[in-house]
Design a protein around this nucleic acid. Structure first.
Lengths: 154, 154
DNA sequence: CTTCATGCAAATAGTTTGCATTCTT
DNA sequence: AAGAATGCAAACTATTTGCATGAAG
């Protein structure tokens, strides 16, 4: 089957271009990353990896993640609460996040206005924008409980 | 003189309220923080502190910063580049930052539209907003060099 | 057969903690 | 006198690195 063929292709291309080597471990780590939840911690990822090969340890996985981040197959997040998390995503689009402080769930959102505001601000302050980090923290719908039982907002 | 009286007052009130003790070290660390640049690293802060008292070490300063963060006298930042930085600020207002990737300088900005967008998004996704982190990274005016010599934008 | 990757253990960076001693209240 | 803070060293967490061995080009 052609599972994860696209991502494996990207990896292989990057390796070839940089004259690095195509190894079983690299592909195994990539598969593990892709089949896991969208946001994993290093510990979770290593556990997934070791389900397939007990011999692979933290150093290899760290090295792989660095590589994957370089070729756009993954992204590293340091949210305000909890540990470093790795995201597997290829999209070039929205990179703004809502993080639930209770359950830790992350949902992405995108709103063109935020983009617009950023451009305006950077123009006003003569700042050449290259990257941004927009993260909203709070309590997600599920953790707030059913609608009827919610306390009144002021 | 009444230098930093306001901040010292806040600290003393917080200590009294929590039945903690008012010590020379705590006030010395607070003064050092306030007289230094707006964003300091732990190393810089410890250096400032030790200029006044060589006996005070990292543990005490770490413990103080934790305390100051609790009573709103300081904030801890983990920007994408560089080390953890502590900010001394009392304002309740803007908490959005522009960070220069070259010189590391931080400037704050605030734009009511960002606020509005956040409220809209959180309403749409039924998310109870409690905090946010908005950081824009790029090259500041100074690091881009004089206007005349800049390369054309595409 | 050269270069690079791997896996382990050790090193590192940043931060926190246990504990004996010393200060505040 | 009792409770809390300090300062040191040791512990800890997350991540990186040196090096001998093994695999890929």
């Amino acid at each position: 089957m052609a599972l994860f063929e696209k991502e494996l292709g990207i990896l292989r291309a990057h390796l070839k271009k940089s004259r690095l080597k195509q190894t079983g471990q690299r592909e195994l780590v990539l598969r593990s990353l892709l089949e896991g939840p969208r946001y994993v911690t290093m510990d979770e990822l290593v556990a997934l990896v070791q389900k397939r090969d007990r011999g692979i340890g933290y150093s290899t996985v760290y090295r792989c993640m660095k590589l994957f981040c370089e070729c756009g197959l993954a992204k590293e997040h340091h949210f305000l609460y909890g540990k470093t998390r790795f995201e597997h995503s290829l999209d070039g689009a929205p990179h703004d996040y809502l993080i639930c402080k209770q359950c830790g769930r992350v949902q992405e959102f995108s709103n063109p206005l935020i983009q617009a505001v950023q451009e305006k601000v950077s123009k006003e302050l003569d700042f050449k924008l290259e990257e941004h980090r927009v993260e909203l923290y709070g309590i997600c719908s599920t953790c707030q409980g059913p609608l009827q039982s919610r306390p009144e907002e002021d």
